[in-house]
Design a protein around this nucleic acid. Structure first.
Length: 305
DNA sequence: CAGTCGTGGCC
DNA sequence: TGGCCAAGACT
C-alpha cells in the first residue's frame, strides 16, 4: 500500500513534487561541476576559516571578500589568535568590508569558542546559531561547507532561484527553505549548495539573468508562466529597499570608525572626519557606536573597541 | 515584523 | 548621475 505523496490544498497553489525538486537539484549540481568560481574558501574545510568567510560574506559580494580572505585568515588563524588580536584589532582588520558590528560579533564568537567550546567551532546547528552574528544562513553554510552535511543553505541567491525557476511565484522563507531542502542531492550537499549560490550569483542574477545559457530554461516556472513580473522581487529573503547612503548618519559613523582605525582621536577630530557641523549629531552617533561595542572613551580620547 | 546596520561596484 | 543590490543578523 502507499500513501499519497502530496495532496494539493484547494486554497493554496500546490508545490512541486519531490521528484521534480530533485530534478532541479541534480541539474544545478551538474551545472556546478563545470562552473564553480575559484573562491579561496572553497579550498579549505577549516571550520573557523569558513565561519570567518561566511560572516564576511553576509550582505557583501563574494569578489570583495575573496581578495581579503588570506589576510583575514592569516591574522585570525584560530579563535585563540583572534582573541589575542583583541577587539580593536579585529575591527581594524574589517576596514572596507562594511557592517562593522560584524567584526565585534566575530570577536565575541572567538571568545565564546575559546571559553566554552575548547577553541573549536561546534558541530550542531543550534550551537552555531547560539553564537553572536551566526544566524540561519551562516549556521547552515558552516554545516554544509565545513562539515559537508547534506543540509540546505538558504540565502538571497537561493530564494531568487527558487522563486523564479521552481515556483514562478513569490514565496515565504519557510516554504522556500523547505523546497531547498528537498533539492539537496544525497551525499552532494557541499557541491550542490556551492552551485546554488553561484547559480544565483552569476547566472540567475537579480538584475539581468542569463536565461539564454540557463540549463533550467525548459523547466523554468517563471519563463513558462510568461509573466513579465519577476517573482523574486517580492519574495522574502531577497533585496529590500535601502535608504540613501550619501549624507546619511550611517556614512558619518563609518567615517568615524575609519578614522579610529588609524589612531585614537578627540571628539573634534571625529567630527571633522564626518564632515558634519552639528556637535549634537556627532555625540548621538558616538553614543550609538559605543553601545554597539565599536568604540570606547578614555579621558578626552576615543578608541576603537 | 519592519527598521537598521557600511561600503563599493555596476549600469 | 543615482538607484539598485550584495553568501544576513539583530532588535
Amino acid at each position: 500500500m502507499s500513501l499519497p505523496q502530496h495532496v494539493a490544498s484547494p486554497t493554496k497553489p500546490d508545490l512541486p513534487q519531490r521528484r521534480a525538486l530533485q530534478g532541479f537539484g541534480r541539474t544545478i549540481l551538474g551545472w556546478g561541476e563545470g562552473n564553480l568560481r575559484d573562491l579561496p574558501w572553497r579550498r579549505t574545510r577549516d571550520p573557523w576559516h569558513i565561519l570567518l568567510a561566511e560572516v564576511a560574506l553576509q550582505q557583501t559580494q563574494a569578489a570583495r571578500v575573496a581578495e581579503r580572505f588570506v589576510e583575514l585568515t592569516t591574522a585570525m588563524a584560530t579563535p585563540t589568535a583572534t582573541v589575542h588580536l583583541g577587539k580593536a584589532g579585529v575591527i581594524s582588520l574589517w576596514s572596507g568590508l562594511g557592517y562593522n558590528s560584524r567584526a565585534v560579533r566575530l570577536f565575541q564568537t572567538a571568545e565564546r569558542l575559546v571559553e566554552s567550546f575548547d577553541g573549536e567551532v561546534p558541530g550542531t546547528n543550534a550551537e552555531l546559531q547560539s553564537l553572536p552574528g551566526i544566524g540561519p544562513y551562516t549556521a547552515a553554510a558552516i554545516e554544509a561547507f565545513a562539515f559537508e552535511r547534506d543540509v540546505a543553505v538558504y540565502d538571497t541567491n537561493v530564494a531568487r532561484v527558487i522563486a523564479r525557476a521552481v515556483l514562478g511565484a513569490p514565496t515565504s522563507t519557510k516554504v522556500g527553505f523547505e523546497l531547498a531542502r528537498s533539492m539537496v542531492p544525497k551525499h552532494s550537499g557541499w557541491l550542490f549548495n556551492q552551485a546554488m549560490l553561484d547559480f544565483g550569483a552569476t547566472l540567475c542574477t537579480a538584475r539581468s539573468p542569463s536565461c539564454e545559457r540557463c540549463p533550467l530554461r525548459r523547466r523554468c516556472a517563471w519563463r513558462n508562466s510568461g509573466d513579465e513580473q519577476d517573482p523574486a522581487r517580492t519574495t522574502a529573503g531577497t533585496a529590500r529597499p535601502q535608504g540613501r547612503f550619501e549624507g546619511s548618519a550611517r556614512q558619518g559613523r563609518g567615517r568615524m570608525i575609519e578614522r579610529l582605525r588609524r589612531s585614537s582621536a578627540t571628539f573634534e577630530e571625529l567630527r571633522t572626519a564626518t564632515g558634519w557641523d552639528d556637535d549634537a549629531q556627532v555625540a548621538t552617533q558616538l553614543n550609538d557606536l559605543m553601545t554597539a561595542g565599536l568604540l570606547s572613551k578614555r579621558g578626552a580620547k576615543y578608541f576603537l573597541g
